[in-house]
Design a protein around this nucleic acid. Sequence first.
DNA 1: ATCTGGACCTGAACGC
DNA 2: TGCGTTCAGGTCCAGA
Length: 283
Amino acid sequence: MPELPEVETVRRGLAPVMEGDRIAVARVNRPDLRWPFPERMAERLTGARVERLERRSKYILAALDSGETLLMHLGMSGRILISGDALGRFVHDHPAPEKHDHVVFDMASGARVTFNDPRRFGAMDLMPTETREAHALLAALGPEPLGNAFHEAHLVAALEGRNTPIKAALLDQKIVAGLGNIYVCEALYRSRIHPGRRAGRISRARRARLVPAIRDTLTDAIAAGGSSLRDYRQADGELGYFQHSFDVYGREGLPCRRDGCDGVIRRIVQSGRSSFYCPRCQR
DNA sequence: ATCTGGACCTGAACGC
DNA sequence: TGCGTTCAGGTCCAGA
């Protein structure tokens, strides 16, 4: 599912339930997701207080008072459900356990956090908070696209000489961390760049223009996620996907939304994944 | 060093 | 109703 905006939305929804609270009981219902869980994960989590809930790229990081950080990744199909009644803020009854509820946290407040992931491309791990930057999954990540380290000079240089299509380059988490298939398509549309264009052959000025396009794309999506968060209490407590309308993603055959453009959105396959773009205004 | 394609896994949607 | 095929928001890894 989840690209940076969805993960950030999950983090924001989870923060009021987890930050400052203790995991009274952690239940781990299977030995692994994409990889085996760390040794004794349930025991190491049970009783720990969550000090901060953070995000790096598509990873949610929970810093615990035990000195460890819990890393969570939602993979393609991961979802998180909040249920229970914590201080009157969350009022969903605990639903019947569902298939693929792999990890469950019962917080001291009474809230329950359930991690469900049918495809099991997700992951969890524990590491010392002090050295977590060096964790294999985090060490090689490029800059956060909404942070100060992601700027025009960085992206221009990172794409210099690359022969790969810009679509693939922007999916490379070492160049910029957190973009996935949807938001790369959307950002390229905003920048009017064709997804098949070789990264290193895009003019420096156009490469630079990608930076604000990426930022705006993600910022708008996070805003849409935020508005969905305001509703989830009345709904079912599920964090993750939210209603968001895309300009190109999933719109094959539909008209381009750009003012004055009469193009029709096209779908192509690049390195096994769908790319959507307007052949008229993306070059 | 780069780049591509296969692998991991389940479920939904679709055509017959 | 059932069966086969295709597709899906990620990313690691082997091999060219």
